[in-house]
């Protein structure tokens, strides 16, 4: 599906991201992630993993991008619905604020890993 989005549509969030850098990470996190992972990234034991003090979040960037973009282990895929720049900002935010491991992910880094189809969010016909 992503391949069908015209380049002009993607270009806008990319430009916006370049200007705002980390600034939107927190509101984007609170908006999209906090219902499950909690506002402070503490998660809910047995259901939603903690993102704070997490070896996974502080670890391999490619794995991190993949799980957010494609979904996995019950986690929904956000790759089709959020702009790559937004995903990058969210990941930078949870690494820096919850794990003291700053990173400088950009939309380009996320795009580079978006090569396969994400999970289908709809019910099947």
């Amino acid at each position: 599906m992503k391949q069908l989005i015209p380049a002009t549509v993607i270009a806008v969030p990319l430009l916006m991201a370049a200007q705002s850098a980390l600034a939107d990470g927190e509101p984007l996190y609170q908006q999209n992630c906090s219902a499950c992972h909690m506002t402070d990234g503490s998660g809910i034991p047995g259901a939603f993993p903690a993102l704070a003090d997490s070896d996974f979040v502080a670890g391999n960037l490619e794995e991190l991008i993949r799980i957010v973009a494609y979904g996995r282990a019950g986690m929904p895929s956000f790759g089709d619905e959020l702009a790559s720049a937004e995903l990058a900002e969210i990941l930078n935010y949870i690494r820096d604020t919850f794990n003291d491991t700053p990173s400088d992910l950009s939309a380009t880094d996320v795009e580079a890993l978006k090569v396969t189809g994400t999970a289908k969010m709809g019910r099947e016909e």
Binding site: A35, P76, S77, A119, K120, M121
Partner: peptide
Amino acid sequence: TAWHLVPENLGGWASWSDEA
């Protein structure tokens, strides 16, 4: 209702990528 927050379900329904 938010089905992803219902502890016995943690989601509305399974979503499979083509790859999976």
